[in-house]
Amino acid sequence: MIDQLQALGFTGLNKLAALGRSFIMLFHSLCYFPNPRVGFPLLIKQLHFVGVLSLIIIVVSGLFIGMVLSLQGYTILVDYGSEQAVGQMVALSLVRELSPVVAGLLFAGRAGSALTAEIGLMKATEQLSSMEMIGVDPLRRIVAPRFWAGFISLPLLSMIFSVVGIWGGLLVGVDWLGIYEGSFWANMQAAVDFRIDVLNGIIKAIVFGYVVTWIAVFQGYDCIPTSEGISQATTKTVVYSSLSILGVDFLLTALMFGDL
């Protein structure tokens, strides 16, 4: 009993220490916004790595999710004779919820895990140590550009996801199921408010970008530098960031739409 209590305390302290380390890392890397001379090429490279390379998965899943939403919405709404509302339904659910959340989850799987593995591998092969010995802060050179790249990429990806999804919904709803295009758009525009829906969706995406990259980079930076440690850290990244996205999403939704 006492032993278990001690084990609990030990785990708790460890988690707390890790949390503390992650905050220190966050603080240090956010201080270094990439400076134009050295940092920009690094940032561009990372934007390519986490942003451009995630584009395909984002576009394809956005398209299909929009199409499915449209199809499902149609089959339900047609019973009430209000199939024109499909546009509004697709747009609202995408812009408010699905784009930031699904794009965030895909981003965690595609870019987050890759970030963790890459940084973990650098740690395991002593590249981080050797960089430190050369007199370059790895937080600045390795972590900060990745951080900013993730932070910039996810909102952009989420917006692309929304637009592609709505286009997919239009494709199914208008071209296939024969909803009148004018009312599809009109309903959508009447229902979607820029500040309340679009802006809040973007804010969500920014927060998720933050959360995912923070977790991914920290797990890589703090992993046990062995192949086992890296694989564990990668798994942790995907699990933790997915759970955090869903949890934070609820919190943000309550704050934004819940009239709290």
Partner: peptide, 29 residues
């Protein structure tokens, strides 16, 4: 970081930066 620029260290695995060429690795410091 200042004093480290006067130390060199050769790591067990070499620890070359895997995303840079040999030239860029040596040019890095």
């Amino acid at each position: 970081f200042e004093i480290r620029s006067r130390m060199g260290m050769l790591f067990q695995s070499g620890a070359l930066f895997s995303d840079l060429s040999v030239f860029e690795n040596v040019a890095f410091p």
